[in-house]
Simulated scan of single mutants.
Amino acid sequence: MEITAPLGLRDKKRAETRAKLERAAVELVLREGLAHATVDAISEAADVSSRTFFNYFDSKEDAVLGIHDLELTEEAVTEHLRKNDGAGLVESIVKLLFWVIGPSITTTDLHALRMQVVKAHPELLSRHVTQMTRMADQLTAAIQTLLASDPEFAADPVQTRSASADMLLTICSGGVRVAVKEWVTEGSTVSSDPATTDQLEQRAIELVREVTKKIQ
């Protein structure tokens, strides 16, 4: 979904610093435990100041998971629509949400270590809920754009589409949360499997469809 462009020197340095902080956070938790992996300790291990840490993450938990908010620009949403042309609405929304939380489940070399932490501390997954709440306005606006392209919702008044977008965000984000929770609880291993995100997306879609079908 991202529209890629060559990174400038400043962007490269920011990406490197973020990666250092993420690795330091994960390794410290594994070595010292979650309680002892403080922001100060993570910053010291990454050789940056605590003030710099908060330029990248809101909390140590976000650094462990690799969570950072993405800007859902009009161009990004348009690209998402193009890439998912023909997809059902639930499928499209779930894929959008997985793009937002993607860093914590991508198959980098840090991923296996991160999953060890998440399996030991499943409460960390609540940070995804916090992130989606923080990004609710952006996500709702993006979903409204998706609804405007869906024949079932396109003719609805703007206010009605806005309410529908809020409801769909709640339902689909719940499906994503449960799918990831199941994956962690069941002890799935995904250290280098590129199909993992697809599997989680399909499970989330399945969960949403199963529940909504039963309550109709």
Rank of each mutant, 00 (worst) to 15 (best):
A5F: 04
A5R: 10
P6N: 00
L7N: 00
L9D: 03
R10G: 00
R10Q: 09
K12R: 14
K13M: 14
E16F: 09
R18G: 02
K20T: 03
L21A: 01
E22Y: 01
A25K: 06
A25Q: 05
R31D: 12
G33M: 03
A37E: 06
D40A: 13
I42V: 10
E44C: 03
A46S: 03
D47L: 07
V48R: 01
T52P: 01
T52D: 06
F54A: 11
F57K: 01
D62W: 12
L65M: 13
L65W: 05
G66D: 04
H68N: 13
H68C: 11
H68R: 15
D69E: 15
D69H: 12
L72M: 14
L81D: 02
D85E: 13
L89W: 04
S92T: 11
S92N: 08
S92C: 07
V94M: 05
W99A: 14
W99V: 11
V100H: 12
P103Y: 07
T106I: 11
T107G: 09
T107D: 11
T107W: 07
T108M: 04
A112C: 07
L113H: 12
M115T: 04
P122S: 04
L124G: 06
T130D: 14
T133G: 12
T133M: 14
R134A: 15
M135W: 08
D137A: 12
D137L: 06
Q138P: 01
L139T: 04
A142W: 06
A142F: 06
D156H: 12
V158P: 04
R161Q: 14
A163C: 08
S164W: 09
A165V: 08
D166E: 14
D166A: 14
M167Y: 13
I171A: 07
G175Y: 02
V176Q: 05
V178H: 01
W183G: 00
W183Y: 04
V184G: 00
T185F: 08
G187N: 02
T189V: 12
S191W: 03
P194D: 03
P194N: 03
A195Y: 11
T196N: 10
T196E: 10
D198N: 13
I205S: 03
E206K: 11
V208R: 02
V208G: 03
V211S: 10
K213Y: 10
